[in-house]
């Protein structure tokens, strides 16, 4: 996904002279094309993320469209007050991109994990929160975010994510039904999408149940109405995200569903309340936190005893 980000931001810079990329000394060779073609439109702000976010707000104030890029925890919690005050409060058109979100850097340890960003940013007014799942969705959401002129946080994966056919270019607020099914609905947020698709296969094979898989690319703004038509007829809903259960998409969905009187069992899968002290691959970490395909299948089995 980060390669797609680099090529898309370069294309956007070529089209729109207002687009400028800020990096916190991250992106080795990734932005060589952008830097070569538009040397003034790439600013390496150094290992100083709090300042970088304030600089982005100042650039936005001058009529530019800054896009800030670094590893997720350093473009979120490291500079949270600058995001809250200088960007969100001022409705500055800054797009904040966190690379290697969720557990993409599982083997680098919890300093590089990002399992709190949805929760934090959901609570901050004016911010859009988006989570593409592959390169095409990243490209379309990035464009939409810059064009929207609204402060936007986008968490992206790392590299090697497989594209998932999902039709028309994705807009902020839209969801995509990527697999049809009638018994179970899985709502998968951002980069966890492949686990949901794998789970759908397992549930079909093991339990004989068909799964509808809906990919969620936007955490905020949230609309239950956009999802309601996709929930009709199913016997249970499972949400899954590479994020803490606390404050995540699932919690938001379940609260909205309860308040609207939706009569469906809902299971929300997300990381439990713990820093991971073991080293492992992203797959290993997903299993550790119970958000991999096996965990999704197990959740369906628990929700529907008949499936056993």
């Amino acid at each position: 996904m980060r390669n797609a980000f680099a090529s898309e931001i370069t294309a956007m810079a070529a089209e729109d002279p207002r687009v400028v990329l800020l990096s916190g000394d991250i992106g080795n060779r990734l932005f060589d094309d952008l830097r070569g073609r538009f040397p003034d439109r790439f600013i390496n702000c150094g290992v100083a993320e709090a300042n970088m976010m304030g600089v982005a707000a100042g650039l936005a104030m001058s009529g530019l469209r800054p896009v800030v890029y670094t590893i997720t925890p350093f473009t979120t919690t490291r500079c949270l007050e600058q995001i809250r005050v200088d960007v969100a409060y001022h409705e500055a058109p800054v797009v904040i991109v966190g690379t290697g979100a969720g557990l993409a850097y599982a083997d680098l340890g919890p300093t590089h994990h990002s399992l709190e960003d949805f929760a934090i940013f959901r609570a901050i007014p004016n911010l859009q929160v988006v989570a593409p799942w592959d390169s095409p969705s990243l490209r379309s959401l990035l464009r939409d975010a810059v064009q929207s002129g609204k402060p936007t946080y986008m968490r992206i994966g790392k590299k090697g994510e497989k594209d998932i056919p999902a039709g028309e270019p994705l807009k902020i607020g839209q969801v995509r039904e990527t697999r049809s099914g009638s018994d179970v609905c899985i709502l998968a947020v951002g980069t966890i999408a492949p686990e949901a698709l794998k789970a759908a296969d397992q549930i079909k094979t093991k339990f004989g149940l068909s799964c509808r898989v809906v990919l969620i690319g936007t955490v905020k703004p949230f609309s239950l109405d956009a999802l309601k038509p996709l929930l009709t007829g199913v016997k249970t809903v499972v949400t899954v995200e590479e994020h803490a259960k606390t404050g995540g998409f699932g919690e938001q969905f379940a609260a909205a569903a309860a308040q609207s009187g939706l009569d469906l069992p809902i299971t929300c899968l997300g990381a439990h309340d713990e820093f991971m002290h073991q080293v492992g691959t992203q797959s290993y970490a997903r299993a550790f936190f119970g958000i991999d395909a096996a965990a999704i299948a197990a959740a369906v089995r628990s929700a529907l005893p008949i499936a056993a």
Binding site: G58, L59, M61, S62, L64, Q82, D86
Partner: peptide, 15 residues
Amino acid sequence: HGLSVAVGAAIGLRS
């Protein structure tokens, strides 16, 4: 916060 924002504004004005 203000000096960072001022730095951004100075870069933006220059550009």
